[in-house]
């Protein structure tokens, strides 16, 4: 198993070991959801970047708040 990681990564044939940074993948997912939702929803595409940033920030903020609330429940209750 240790030999496998020293060999070159072959895209699509081997997984990437994510154990250390998998939570960071939340950011591209949030951005993708915001881009798709706003691209379908808004009438004027010129407003897209601003709307996407706002929506992504809102999702991220609420997820952080939910995580903090759940952490408090786990720690205090």
């Amino acid at each position: 198993m240790s030999t496998m990681h020293t060999l070159a990564y072959r895209p699509f044939l081997e997984p990437i070991p994510l154990e250390g940074f998998w939570l960071l993948l939340l950011v591209p997912l949030i951005l993708a959801v915001a881009i798709i939702y706003k691209s379908v929803k808004i009438e004027n595409m010129a407003l897209l970047p601003r709307q996407v940033v706002m929506m992504a920030a809102q999702i991220l903020a609420f997820m952080v708040m939910a995580a903090a609330a759940l952490w408090l429940v786990v720690e205090l209750v």
């Binding site: 895209p11 699509f12 044939l13 081997e14 997984p15 990437i16 994510l18 993948l25 591209p28 997912l29 993708a32 881009i35 798709i36 691209s39």
Partner: peptide, 15 residues
């Protein structure tokens, strides 16, 4: 956007 997410998933976990 959708293809980036889809291809990203395949790059992360493979086929």
């Amino acid at each position: 956007t959708i293809l980036a997410v889809w291809v990203g998933g395949l790059l992360i976990g493979g086929v």
